[in-house]
């Protein structure tokens, strides 16, 4: 078992309001992020991801439970480890009338970082040349880059990124993805909270999925995607319904997906092909489709709207 950089046990956060009553944002969350690599942190809107991150960083207080960063209890010992943690929480937040460089300078001065670090961070995120512009004139993508530059001022061992590619153009998304990957490769642990599941699947080595403030699954990406995704069968559109009927009659679970059929279960492709042939339907294409993170995520969080009480379901990594 590798060393954990983030660990929570029974983490609980309740928002108390006299008008709206109490609302549980995070409940009994056990989060474990091992050192090194990129760890995805996934969940539907309002599932408690940002609240969890904010509690870890001392911006919000936990109602109950324990949190540790680098094996130090937080928030009590947060000042001891904060220099090792870089974070972008939700939207970038800087003073609008300051230039990009002035904003970074303020933060660098707080930790006594030299000006050369600011130059390096600006160069890494591609903002050199725009650093003297006022922050309020930046595009959303530039604001995101500046926020990432701010995290690099500390040369962190742990980077917590909450939706870091929001507002970036495709080229920017690719750059940030490459940057995250190379940071992960260089030994920095990255906790990546994102809605873009394809991106998480491409970049992350492990992931935790939460819903309604509770952990639903956690493990390496390979562990999470273990098991057959299904068999994808493409037929003449005119025969789609006949194919579905034939397979369903044989006890095969079938879904329609993007104009094709997706047969789940453990029947091999050749048997499905035979069943179709016996019904006079000929497949134009047939092949195994591996489960992807998106389908796994959607299956886990199905009907998981905020406010509904979904019980914690152990994911593959938890079994």
């Amino acid at each position: 078992m590798s060393e954990l950089v983030i660990e929570t046990r029974g983490l609980l956060k309740e928002f108390r309001s006299l008008r709206k009553g109490n609302k549980v944002a995070v409940k009994d969350l056990d989060l474990r992020v091992p050192a090194g690599g990129v760890h995805g942190f996934l969940g539907p809107n309002g599932s408690g991801k940002t609240t969890t991150i904010r509690m870890l960083l001392g911006l919000a207080s936990a109602t109950g439970g324990e949190m540790r960063l680098f094996d130090e209890p937080v928030p009590r010992h947060l000042p001891k480890v904060i220099d090792k943690v870089g974070a972008v929480v939700e939207m970038p937040k800087f003073l609008p009338n300051f230039t990009g460089r002035q904003n970074l300078r303020m933060l660098a001065d707080t930790i006594g970082a030299p000006a050369a670090v600011i130059d390096a961070a600006l160069e890494t995120v591609g903002l050199t040349g725009r650093d003297q512009d006022r922050y309020k004139g930046y595009s959303l993508g530039m604001k995101q880059r500046l926020a990432i530059a701010a995290t690099l001022l500390k040369q962190p061992s742990l980077l917590i990124l909450d939706e870091p590619t929001n507002g970036l153009d495709p080229a920017g998304i690719r750059e940030i993805r490459e940057m995250i990957r190379s940071l992960g490769d260089s030994g920095v642990t990255v906790l990546l909270s994102s809605h873009i599941l394809a991106e998480v699947q491409q970049v992350c080595t492990s992931a935790t999925i939460i819903g309604n403030g509770r952990m639903l699954a956690s493990g390496t990406v390979d562990e999470l995607l273990e098991g057959p995704g299904g068999v994808r069968i493409v037929v003449d559109p005119a025969q789609l319904e006949a194919a579905r009927t034939a397979l369903t009659a044989a006890g095969v679970e079938v879904e329609t997906s993007e104009g094709a059929l997706l047969a789940t279960g453990d029947r091999p492709p050749q048997e499905l092909n035979r069943l179709l042939g016996e019904s006079g339907v000929w497949a134009s294409e047939i092949g195994i489709e591996r489960q992807n993170l998106e389908s796994f995520f959607l299956r886990l969080t199905e009907g998981d709207a905020m406010g509904s009480a979904a019980p914690a379901t152990p994911g593959p990594g938890e079994r």
Binding site: P79, L95, T110
Partner: peptide
């Protein structure tokens, strides 16, 4: 501007 949270990410005391 919300920059208070940014400042606390650099010094949480």
């Amino acid at each position: 501007s919300g920059s208070m949270s940014n400042q606390l990410l650099f010094d949480p005391r």
